[in-house]
Design a protein around this nucleic acid. Structure first.
Length: 952
RNA sequence: GCGGGGGUAGCAAAGCCUGGCCAAAUGCGCAGGACUUAAGAUCCUGUCUCUUAGUGAGUUCGAGGGUUCAAAUCCCUUCCCCCGCACCA
């Protein structure tokens, strides 16, 4: 067996030594292809592998087609995850340490050394420094034809300077805005919280919810109740407060609000003018004026009220809240409590449900009905939560507001919700408040709440004229497949203000306030252009001060005179010119191959950014690939089903991976890694290798029949067309499986000399067409074959359309069918020791008949009409009923009509030619006669292309 | 909820746009055979059901209807699954 790893290593080394993929401007058509760079957060896995492997296959194809190909790749380090790794190690998080130890140990053996490296990871930059070279290695071992000289990370000076330039431009044009924005925040840590910063944040996401604060006039103060259902104000019957909780007068602006202490603390992170004054006096049994309802309602004791949700004051709507209904019912029966708080029993008894929302399922008292239907006994019933959700869902989607709701009568709940909220706020009867969707804590244990930042920077995609420009870019971009265009349009519509700076993370400092870091998707939108010049920047050791705004104005925009640009940047004219020319030569990015999930963020931002700054060089074509799963599930650390590129290297090798991942499914579908399938891919790659090797040994000049020329050229043609369209699965199917089939066919049918000539005819092309997908195996074979130079650079084989001969392939297929029929009949025939096989060729008139029928059937399927028209011919009339039967039969089974019309004579010749071979194969004497000369009953059942068989 | 994608034989996965040659490519698995001392690899044959000296019948492409001479493919209804819904890479 061939050692895949050895072959891969050998050729990767040779490619590197000959700088095969390091290209400069040339007098040749260029092709610049990119795929998004990976984010540094651990080892690369097959998900990363998919996008680069697919991109590489296409890059290699284009290279063989004669293009000067550029395929560069960088690395994304911006944002919080790398920081998270460092912080976790710093905090002694064992899981993280274990994970990274394992990873480092793949490269370093010495235990002490490993510990030292892990220790160094407390500095985020060290994480990056360690990972980048390893990742380049891991990618390289996949056989990527990447020009690594041009590589950078988003933390590199050149990238940062480019992004700084970009944001200054945004500001100039007026695309940057500043304003309020709610974020998840941990007061103890003093930081905004991303998913990674929150305990279990990845498995149980924390969301920001906007609550409505209802203001209940209470003397000169307001009691503040928080609700997620402002549309239910018309059904309020009472307020609940927790008798165990202390309530405070809180000065908010000029007015005094009443709420619990925790709520005031939260509120103080959302608005500046919050100040706790004093304890509020007794509330239970008193009345407050309910907004919306515009009536006084009573304040009742509710020990169930959670002071850590909302304000600690809850408004009660028994009509639509099963919980309120139950609590109220419980209280009515609870004499002890009523006495304890000196409540008037009668007053509570008289509280009546106010219907406000009507649904088909629950009528207009959903709270009551749901509780009764489910036999809820009291407020502690665990089913209540579930029922509440069900009632809410039903009401929200199907409910209509009743006439109690005044001007909102007849409105759907989903609409009324927003309308009523707006009205209350407008009338100063309500305000808003943000709460987390669940209780959450940061990794260091501090509570996570929602804070409102008042100086958040945004990119405003709704800035005047920007969207129109972006749509133009979209129109000019080819999409593969086109069906994604609608998604882009949706995404474009939906894009609004995007916060583009954060307080934490690695990245580029926000140019107008250095405390902020540019957010990590916003900083990765125009970097394709940087690939065109980055190696020049590095070679000439340009410094931060050189790469100032003038540098990019000149190189990317050509907006300055060379002289002036050189003066302003301190870069020599030669180098500047070299950058500009390289940029102009390689731009635009001809093709970008990406994961489909990037559509609504990265790819959309990319188009907007280009529309704003570099409209002439926007990427011209975008293709998509699907998700990667493993053994039927999403890859995740916790499941332990992640397949890394290191695993790939260890167990399979580059070519097998490349073949497997592009053959198992179409490019846009989800790919599911199955170890079993990977194993069989291995066999297939080995098989190609063996087959070609065998051919190389055997090949010899000679004559090749038109059938094999035809079959081979057809495969070549289809291979080329599919690969051009980046339909990699279909391409593999031809270049690998159909070629293997063809070789099998040749081995089974050709004489030794013919086979040698056949090999000689196909081998050069075959090695070439597998080269994009299995480049190492191809190089190895190419060397064996005696090909010139690298096959990676060899010209793509041309097919000869004129050699594709449908008819001879059809005739060949008749032979295959005949063999099948013979085997079948031999098995079924109860003839012991059969000696003779008679092949009865169909009567001559049937050939004419089929020809005519084939034409007629195109016009009509009406049996009567066809029969009439065919019976006009004397020769058919003679056959009488048999013709009618045949017409019937063929209409029902159109596959009986031969694809190609051959004559009786031609069929006879075909059989005669194969007589000997068949005779040998089945060890039978074979006789061939025409139906006209046979008196066998079977003779009638013979059809053109399908002789009747007789075994004796 | 909104938006997008999908449900095909034991499994994976084509076909669907542009209806007929579709009992449905291909790969895996499985069964039988060849080769082999044997295993593996490889090769050949088969793999919805029934039937048969073959080229016949029946039931299939999530479910139910419809259009059509003809539907996996077009239309309607319905069930189920997956993904995205932003500040997160």
């Amino acid at each position: 067996m061939v050692d895949q790893t050895k072959i891969a290593g050998k050729w990767q080394k040779k490619w590197k030594e000959s700088k095969l993929f390091e290209k400069e401007k040339e007098n040749k058509e260029k092709f610049f292809i990119t795929t998004p760079y990976p984010y540094i957060s651990g080892s690369l896995h097959i998900g990363h592998g998919r996008s680069v492997a697919e991109t590489d296959i296409y890059a290699r194809y284009k290279r063989m087609k004669g293009y000067n190909v550029l395929f560069p790749l960088g690395f994304h380090i911006t944002g919080t995850p790398v920081l998270g790794i460092s912080a976790a190690i710093e905090n002694g998080d064992e899981k993280t340490i274990k994970t990274y130890k394992k990873y480092v140990s793949a490269y370093v053996e010495d235990e002490e050394e490993i510990n030292k490296i892990i220790e160094s990871f407390k500095d985020p930059q060290k994480v990056v420094d360690f990972f980048i070279p390893k990742m380049i290695d891991e990618y390289t071992q996949l056989g990527l034809s990447v020009d690594w000289r041009r590589s950078f990370t988003t933390g590199d000076m050149s990238h940062q300077q480019m992004v700084t330039w970009q944001f200054k431009k945004y500001k100039e044009i007026g695309y940057l805005k500043q304003g309020e924005y709610p974020v998840l925040y941990c007061p103890q840590d003093g930081n905004a919280m991303g998913e990674d910063d929150i305990k279990d944040g990845d498995s149980d996401a924390v969301e920001k919810q906007e609550w409505t604060l209802l203001k209940f006039k209470f003397g000169d103060k307001y009691l503040i109740a928080a609700t997620l259902r402002p549309e239910t104000v018309y059904g309020q019957t009472n307020l609940w407060i927790n008798p165990e909780v202390t309530y405070y007068d809180v000065k908010v602006g000029q007015t005094t609000w009443v709420m619990c202490e925790k709520a005031a603390w939260k509120l103080s992170h959302q608005r500046k003018d919050v100040e706790i004054k004093q304890k509020t006096g007794e509330l239970i049994g008193k009345k407050a004026f309910a907004p919306g309802l515009e009536k006084e309602i009573i304040i009742l004791p509710g020990p169930f009220v959670d002071p850590d949700r909302g304000t600690g004051i809850v408004t009660s709507v028994p009509s639509d809240a099963p919980f309120d209904y139950t609590a109220l019912r419980d209280l009515k029966n609870d004499k002890k409590t009523i006495e304890k708080y000196n409540l008037k029993r009668e007053e509570i008894e008289n509280i009546e449900i106010i219907p406000i929302i009507k649904t088909e399922k629950y009528g207009d008292k959903a709270g009551l009905k749901a509780v009764e239907e489910n036999n809820i006994e009291n407020q502690h019933d665990k089913k209540l939560t579930e029922i509440t959700q069900e009632v809410y869902r039903e009401g929200f989607h199907k409910g209509i507001m009743t006439k109690t709701c005044g001007e909102f009568e007849g409105m759907t709940v989903s609409k009324a919700k927003e309308a009523i909220k707006k009205k209350l706020i407008r009338e100063n009867k309500a305000s808003t408040f943000f709460e987390t969707s669940r209780k959450a804590y940061s990794r260091s244990g501090g509570e996570v709440i929602v804070a409102v930042l008042d100086d958040q920077w945004f990119i405003d995609f709704n800035s005047k004229g920007w969207k129109e420009k972006a749509y133009k870019i979209l129109e000019n971009t080819e999409l593969k497949p086109e069906s994604y265009r609608k998604n882009f349009e949706e995404a474009f519509e939906w894009l609004d203000k995007r916060p583009c700076a954060r307080k934490r993370g690695l990245g580029t400092k926000f140019p107008f306030n250095k405390e902020w870091i540019i957010e990590s998707l916003s900083d990765s939108t125009i970097y394709m252009s940087l690939y065109t010049i980055n190696h020049i920047v590095k070679e000439n050791n340009l410094k931060r001060e050189n790469l100032n705004d003038s540098f990019f104005d000149y190189v990317f925009k050509g907006e300055l005179e060379l002289e002036k640009a050189s003066e302003e940047t301190g870069v020599s004219k030669d180098v500047l010119k070299q950058c500009r020319e390289s940029f102009e030569y390689w731009s635009p990015n001809d093709h970008r191959h990406t994961f489909e999930l990037h559509l609504s963020n990265h790819l959309s931002f990319m188009m907007f950014a280009h529309a704003a700054l570099l409209p002439d060089v926007h990427p011209r074509k975008i293709s998509f690939h699907g998700l990667v799963m493993s053994e039927g599930g999403k890859m995740s650390k916790s499941k332990g089903n992640t397949v890394t590129l290191l695993d790939v290297k260890k167990y399979y090798g580059a070519d097998i991976f490349r073949f497997y991942i592009t053959n198992a499914t179409t490019i846009e579908s989800t790919f599911d890694w199955q170890q079993k399938e990977a194993e069989s891919a291995k066999k297939t790659v080995e098989k190609i290798f063996e087959e070609i090797k065998e051919g190389i040994e055997k090949r010899k000049e000679g004559k090749v029949s038109s059938l094999y020329k035809s079959k081979y050229n057809r495969i070549l043609k289809e291979t080329t067309l599919y690969l051009e369209e980046m339909k990699l699965r279909e391409y593999n199917h031809r270049a690998v499986f159909e070629m293997i089939h063809l070789v099998k066919h040749a081995k089974n049918n050709l004489e030794e000399d013919e086979l040698k000539a056949f090999y000689n005819y196909i081998l050069e092309g075959w090695i070439k067409i597998i080269s994009p997908v299995t480049p190492h195996v191809a190089e190895e074979l190419w060397e064996n074959y005696g090909g010139e130079g690298f096959v990676s650079e060899a010209p793509w084989p041309k097919y000869d359309e004129s050699l594709i001969d449908e008819k001879s392939e059809y005739i060949d297929s008749l032979k295959e069918k005949l063999k099948k029929d013979i085997s079948e009949v031999l098995e079924l025939a109860k003839v012991e020791n059969p000696k003779k096989l008679t092949l009865i060729i169909s009567s001559s008139w049937k050939y004419d008949f089929m020809k005519i029928l084939k034409e007629k059937i195109k016009e009509t399927r009406d049996q009567g009409v066809i029969t009439k028209e065919i019976m006009v011919e004397e020769s058919f009339k003679k056959q009488g009923k048999e013709v009618v039967k045949l017409i019937q039969d063929c209409l029902k089974h159109p596959n009986k009509i031969p694809e190609y019309s051959i004559s009786q004579e031609e069929e006879k010749q075909l059989l005669e030619k194969n007589k000997k071979q068949l005779s040998q194969a089945y060890n039978l004497e074979i006789e061939i006669i025409q139906a006209e000369n046979s008196n066998q009953g079977k003779a009638k059942s013979a059809l053109p292309g399908k002789p009747a068989l007789l075994v004796e």
